[in-house]
């Protein structure tokens, strides 16, 4: 945990019990694969044990355009999985399929199978609304509702019909879970927009865990934040992984190395005949293994291209 003071993200006691040495890569631009990471802290089996989600030959189309193909992934329970790769290779596309947010995009279509706890996520009887209650999402740009901090958290439980014994308690728990409680406990009635960007993003995470999801999807959750706010969110992710399965898209390979147990590398390749660029999964492995000795040439190029 960094201890540099910051105007809007002042360190508080809530941060004290967080796991050690996660932000250490920040000070040094080079990728330190030897720094203790989450992957280093605990045993990661070679293959995900009782995976929460299985993707088999998944391809996603936007109208006639095939954005991604050949995606085979198992997301391990209570693991952090990072999706990395160059821009346009379909990371966000794959992520949005996992909680059926792609249903909102006109013409989007998923081929192959996505299984969530032995159920076909795209089965005919599956209600996307119910899916999203178990599989939450945090977006690239913090998007709090134009309401009070309290109402932002309480919104999810209210609309999903949760009947908590005490809503106040639920709100407090969610805010504590997102390491935000101490900063906002005296101003719960204030508009969420009065918070800093980093605080807003943690509010969005709190909002997400308030409905008690099983899986949390994050699409570049730190890309709009400064390094200090980023470090806090990374710490938070590692803490949350004790209870939730987390899948994160990131452009920051140091971030993947710091937080992810496993990493999936995607790339985009042009079709020889049509010239259409389609994303595909190149390699999926434990993060340490992936960064130390990538099996695929393309992975190696990508990793060393950035950090060589």
């Amino acid at each position: 945990m960094d201890n540099s003071p910051s105007a809007d993200d002042a360190p508080t006691s809530a941060d004290a019990p967080q796991p050690a040495a996660t932000g250490s890569g920040l000070a040094d631009p080079a990728l330190h694969l030897d720094t203790p990471t989450r992957a280093g802290r605990r045993e990661i089996p070679e293959q995900p044990k009782d995976p929460v989600m299985l993707l088999r030959d998944v391809a996603v189309y936007y109208g006639g355009f095939r954005a991604v193909k050949d995606v085979n992934l198992d997301f391990g329970r209570r693991e952090i999985t990072a999706l990395i790769g160059p821009s346009g290779c379909g990371k966000s596309t794959v992520l949005r399929c996992l909680n059926r947010m792609n249903d909102l995009v006109r013409g989007a279509r998923v081929a192959g199978s996505i299984t969530y706890h032995d159920q076909d996520l795209y089965g005919p009887k599956v209600d996307p609304i119910v899916v999203r209650r178990s599989i939450g999402m945090v977006f690239q740009k913090p998007n709090p509702f134009p309401k009070s901090i309290y109402d932002n958290i309480a919104y999810g439980p209210r609309v999903t019909g949760m009947k908590p014994g005490s809503m106040d308690e639920l709100v407090e728990q969610a805010l504590r879970g997102a390491a935000l409680w101490d900063e906002v406990k005296d101003k719960l009635k204030q508009n969420a927009y009065s918070l800093s960007g980093g605080q807003q993003q943690r509010l969005c995470i709190a909002r997400c865990i308030a409905v008690n999801p099983d899986v949390i999807l994050m699409d570049e959750p730190c890309s709009a934040l400064d390094p200090i706010a980023t470090a806090r969110i990374e710490d938070l992710m590692i803490e949350l992984a004790d209870r939730y399965t987390i899948i994160i898209v990131t452009h920051n390979m140091q971030q993947a190395a710091r937080v992810a147990d496993r990493t999936a590398f995607f790339t985009a390749e042009a079709d020889a005949t049509t010239g259409e660029r389609t994303g595909l999964l190149v390699e999926y492995d434990r993060t340490g293994a992936m960064f130390h000795n990538p099996r695929d040439r393309r992975t190696e190029d990508y990793i060393s291209g950035r950090f060589g």
């Binding site: 909680n99 947010m101 909102l104 609304i129 119910v130 999203r132 209650r133 939450g136 999402m137 977006f139 740009k141 998007n143 709090p144 509702f145 134009p146 919104y155 999810g156 609309v159 999903t160 969005c204 909002r207 997400c208 409905v211």
Partner: peptide, 19 residues
């Protein structure tokens, strides 16, 4: 982004519009 945030929490489209 407000609509997406609401829908991603498991709100229905009606709830999103109303609330």
């Amino acid at each position: 982004s407000i609509r997406a945030g609401s829908l991603a929490l498991g709100a229905t489209q009606w709830q999103t519009v109303w609330r």
